[in-house]
Design a binder for these strands. Structure first.
Lengths: 162, 162
DNA sequence: GAGAGACTACTCGGATACAGTCTGTCCGAGTAAATCCGG
DNA sequence: CCGGATTTACTCGGACAGACTGTATCCGAGTAGTCTCTC
């Protein structure tokens, strides 16, 4: 079990979009070039973000994507769920119901103990992801990336933002 | 991204094995019948547990599996990692290295900020799984399963344990 | 020079192939129990 | 009746197909900007 590579791409793309000036858009092409990724496939990840209403898109020349909400109101969990789906990582098939000793017509109440533990762990994972916003990510990046690289990257992006 | 169904099976099987008297073994066939699962495929999950040294196996008639350690010393995480592997759920391909603005020969120090967040979440998930032992699971089950069902199941298993 | 209309080029979005992993099945090597035979 | 060798039947373990999700790609619908022509 491993997350799709699209999750990583989506997060990095959001980090770039987070630094975009108000009202500007950045195209899939630019994002793909910046990250060295296949443009066509990256667009799938961005479509997922678009469907989840995390980003807005515009067509035509100088079109592309921009964040749909303030960076403080978009969390890692939002992005991960947009790409991976909101389903829990553990699916309970309720196999206890196959117990041959189970009396006829017996009906279990609530989810089984195994599923509860797995779901608790899943929730802990989600809570951690929910606790980090894009704003926090950008702040971290700004601190640890060399200023020259940060600025040149910003210029590079700005040049292609419509 | 969703965990394999084998994880669920392995956990339920461990719960059964946890209730087995000292020195007895339970076969794949019995475990498969009890849970209503395909015997052949279930054996794959048990093999994983065996390779992880969580269970011991014996051949011949009245052979099968038993836990290799006390129930208090086997956690959910042990079982999950035995089946799913110990790799982290998020793989960082270090795409920041593709930044076209990156100076020649520039070398990043440490994992990127995105990966750190994802790995923190992964660790929170694992910590939760690590905090629940098989002993705790058995205790929970014993409390919430009707006594008659509990005992008849125990008898059913004991009858087939070699 | 200004405005309206047509055109162009670029964008996103969905529909379409390829690959890898998960799921499910099969058969063989090995061993503990049961059986049989001799003492 | 007891002990040992043989047989047997049952187990695990690895090797072998099918289905589904993830990966990668292509092409069409639609729009913002640009250009041109007319007034």
């Amino acid at each position: 079990m491993i997350l799709k590579s699209q999750v990583e791409w989506a997060l990095h793309c959001c980090a770039i979009l987070a630094g975009l000036p108000e009202g500007r858009y950045l195209s899939t092409k630019a994002l793909a070039e910046f990250h060295g990724l296949p443009k066509e496939y990256l667009s799938k990840a961005l479509q997922s973000l678009s469907q989840a209403k995390l980003v807005e898109s515009t067509l035509g020349p100088s079109g592309g994507y921009r964040l749909a909400r303030p960076t403080a109101e978009i969390t890692f969990l939002d992005v991960v769920e947009a790409v991976e789906g909101k389903e829990r990582t553990f699916a309970c098939s309720n196999i206890r119901a196959n117990n041959p000793c189970r009396p006829e017509g017996y009906c279990e109440a609530g989810p089984c103990a195994v599923a509860r533990v797995m779901w608790d762990a899943d929730e802990a994972w989600r809570a951690k992801l929910r606790s980090v916003s894009l704003a926090a990510l950008v702040q971290t990046l700004e601190q640890e990336i060399p200023t020259t690289l940060w600025q040149s990257s910003f210029q590079w992006v700005l040049k292609r933002a419509g």
